[in-house]
Amino acid sequence: MNKILAIIPARGGSKRLPRKNVLDLHGKPLIAWSIEAALRSRYISKTVVTSDDEEILDIAKRYKADTIERPDELASDSATTFEAIKHAIETSDESYKYIILLQATSPLRDEKHIDEAIELLNVKNADAIVSVCEMEHSPLWSNTLDDDLSMKGFLKEEVLNKRSQDLEKYYRLNGAIYIANVKKFLENGSFFLKENIYAYVMEKSDSIDIDTQADFDFANYLLSVRKG
């Protein structure tokens, strides 16, 4: 496999769940779960945490990740993930063929998922891999509502009276793994390339994306059940 750089972006600020990246999740800071998973991967060459926050950077060093101090202009609410990743690539003292984005908010994604996604990249000779999971509810059972809350025409005729198991499966992004060829990523400004991109399918139970206290509590419960 070609050299792969794992990037874990983690800002200090978070509105819905303050300081979530450093909160203790089943015995270790939230961000540590992603760092350890990346370091245990058989294929990742280097793991770097990019952050504007001193506490996050200190935790990253304690868990043996490399660190990049993100400039203030890349730590604002208006700064994009692409800009932070581009800065991490340009700051690195080595060149890599692939990057893998591992968001700290996906603590149930482990090294097995990472390695399987990278192996899929190799098997497909792909330029990008993005993780997904099956949707909890079919979007065919959803629609918009007018101000008067009328449900006239809410469901299409072909969906009426169908059981959920008879509906076509839909998948959603789960935010756990994004892999791309570095050159193609920089050219496109996104992991979502127009071609030669494939999905890595994960279980819903491994796809928790922590945004709220309820998400955090559920992840903590799942980890306590799995790890005792």
Results as ranks from 00 to 15, higher is better:
residue 200 Y to V: 08
residue 192 F to K: 15
residue 189 G to I: 09
residue 198 Y to E: 00
residue 210 I to Y: 05
residue 209 D to G: 01
residue 205 S to W: 11
residue 196 N to K: 10
residue 201 V to G: 06
residue 198 Y to K: 04
residue 198 Y to A: 02
residue 188 N to R: 13
residue 193 L to C: 08
residue 220 N to Y: 11
residue 219 A to M: 07
residue 197 I to F: 14
residue 215 D to Q: 01
residue 214 A to K: 15
residue 193 L to V: 10
residue 202 M to G: 04
residue 213 Q to P: 01
residue 213 Q to C: 05
residue 213 Q to E: 15
residue 197 I to V: 07
residue 196 N to M: 14
residue 216 F to D: 06
residue 213 Q to K: 15
residue 207 S to G: 02
residue 219 A to F: 07
residue 217 D to S: 14
residue 189 G to V: 04
residue 187 E to W: 06
residue 213 Q to V: 11
residue 225 V to M: 10
residue 187 E to H: 11
residue 206 D to Q: 06
residue 185 F to E: 03
residue 219 A to G: 09
residue 218 F to P: 03
residue 222 L to C: 07
residue 223 L to Q: 07
residue 212 T to Y: 01
residue 210 I to L: 04
residue 190 S to D: 06
residue 212 T to C: 01
residue 189 G to H: 12
residue 208 I to P: 04
residue 206 D to Y: 03
residue 223 L to C: 01
residue 205 S to D: 15
residue 215 D to W: 00
residue 212 T to K: 03
residue 220 N to G: 14
residue 190 S to C: 04
residue 222 L to T: 08
residue 220 N to R: 13
residue 207 S to D: 02
residue 192 F to P: 15
residue 208 I to Y: 04
residue 204 K to T: 01
residue 186 L to A: 00
residue 209 D to Y: 14
residue 193 L to S: 04
residue 203 E to L: 10
residue 188 N to P: 04
residue 195 E to H: 14
residue 211 D to H: 03
residue 224 S to C: 07
residue 222 L to A: 10
residue 195 E to A: 11
residue 202 M to K: 00
residue 188 N to I: 12
residue 194 K to P: 12
residue 215 D to Y: 06
residue 201 V to L: 11
residue 212 T to S: 12
residue 191 F to G: 06
residue 211 D to M: 06
residue 217 D to W: 01
residue 191 F to M: 05
residue 214 A to N: 05
residue 199 A to F: 10
residue 203 E to I: 03
residue 192 F to H: 14
residue 225 V to H: 06
residue 185 F to D: 07
residue 206 D to R: 05
residue 190 S to E: 03
residue 198 Y to M: 01
residue 202 M to S: 01
residue 205 S to N: 05
residue 212 T to Q: 06
residue 222 L to G: 10
residue 201 V to E: 11
residue 205 S to P: 04
residue 209 D to W: 15
residue 225 V to I: 11
residue 207 S to M: 02
residue 215 D to M: 03
residue 204 K to P: 07
residue 211 D to K: 08
residue 201 V to S: 07
residue 198 Y to N: 09
residue 224 S to A: 09
residue 197 I to P: 00
residue 199 A to K: 15
residue 195 E to T: 13
residue 189 G to N: 12
residue 192 F to C: 05
residue 197 I to C: 12
residue 196 N to H: 12
residue 207 S to C: 07
residue 219 A to V: 01
residue 205 S to F: 09
residue 200 Y to W: 09
residue 196 N to C: 14
